[in-house]
Amino acid sequence: MLANYGYKDASGDFFITIDTDKCDGCGNCVPACPVGVFEVLDEDPNDPMRDEPVAVVSGEKKKKLKYECNPCKPDSDRPALPCVAACGEGAISHSW
């Protein structure tokens, strides 16, 4: 499942997508993010029949991703995003 967390407003689209078929719930993304956008839950809230742990974007962060992620997205010389780099399964992507 592609879980798109975030929002669209007049200034653009701000979504973090987690591919839950790739995510194995290892939790590497949690400490990798300097502002704590991710958390790992024991059960996927959007797939109640799945019992394995999965990473999600935490509820309080998903409405302000544009600002939370801003420090990792400089205008030039943009390095790999720490969350994307930390995920060995390649399950995390950003829309902006």
Partner: peptide, 12 residues
């Protein structure tokens, strides 16, 4: 009826 892709806009 299993979700394969979703988005929810509840900010606005």
């Amino acid at each position: 009826g299993k979700v394969t892709n979703f988005l929810m806009n509840d900010k606005c």
